[in-house]
Design a binder for these strands. Structure first.
Lengths: 148, 148
DNA sequence: TATTGTTATACTCTATAACTATA
DNA sequence: TATAGTTATAGAGTATAACAATA
């Protein structure tokens, strides 16, 4: 069985992502949210809200699942559904005042917490990393079918 | 709120990983396995088997969860638990003959399928990507607490 | 007809913690 | 006392497909 060249890269990519995700998720959990819930909160933060469709596209969560996650966030009083006047099939999800307050209370500290993972990373390190990841991303976007 | 430098890198990392994971998971599903199940199968492939502890460390799955996933793979007849003679607290998980056959039947095609994501990526592209990811990984390993 | 979001179902994964049997 | 794995519980995410309302 021939060893494909990309496997090494994907393994590295997965290891990096998992390592970071582990510390991030563990911290999010201590804040009382699940990872997808925090993802939604972070996506809605500093916006006027957006439709389920747009929210699903940004977070890669399918519509059926998204309904449940938004339900739980609505039960916590963090988001609210409003009708979209232009297209009455569509629902707009946005942060409530409490949700906005939670976003501000949690997001900054979370960013600070996760920052420790990159302690000592130089501007040049970041620039080189971003260059390769951006190259990969545009390649993947061009090569792979879009979800949704 | 100051914009932390690492956020852009992490966003790129997550986007790349999610994009790849989406195509990989979707394909794995069509093979009749969940993503964690395939992960276990791939980890056990071409080994003599390993303990729950080692399997958990390699896949980042905690012991309670691992018991359930291995249960389901055992029900499918793909893996088997055997006792460890040296330490009788420990259980060794290894592929059954059928599991080995499934591994060989699924793994190669899956690797080929996912390869399409990197179609046209050059040796230089891979080398540059690997260099930055390996740098990041060793940095994360040094900076972040290990799970387990 | 196609699209947006909901509902229903059934399953898988997950965190957590108490438990057992060994060491 | 500590470790390896299991069990129990409850909740959360997921895929899938059928559905209602609207476009």
């Amino acid at each position: 069985m021939k060893k494909e060249r990309y496997l090494r890269s994907i393994r590295l990519l997965a290891e990096c992502f998992h390592a970071f995700q582990h510390i991030s998720d563990t911290h999010v959990r201590t804040l009382g949210l699940t990872s997808p819930q925090f993802d939604i909160l972070a996506t809605l933060g500093n916006t006027e809200g957006m439709s389920f469709k747009e929210l699903g596209q940004k977070t890669l969560i399918t519509k059926g699942t998204l309904t449940g996650i938004v339900d739980r966030l609505e039960e916590k009083g963090l988001v609210i559904r409003t009708c979209c006047l232009e297209d009455r099939r569509s629902m707009i999800v946005r942060l409530t005042e409490q949700g906005q307050a939670e976003f501000e209370r949690l997001f900054g500290p979370h960013i600070q917490f996760c920052k420790q993972a990159f302690l000592g990373y130089s501007d040049e390190d970041f620039a080189a990393l971003d260059r390769e990841l951006a190259k990969l991303k545009s390649h993947l976007d061009a090569t792979m079918p879009k979800p949704g």
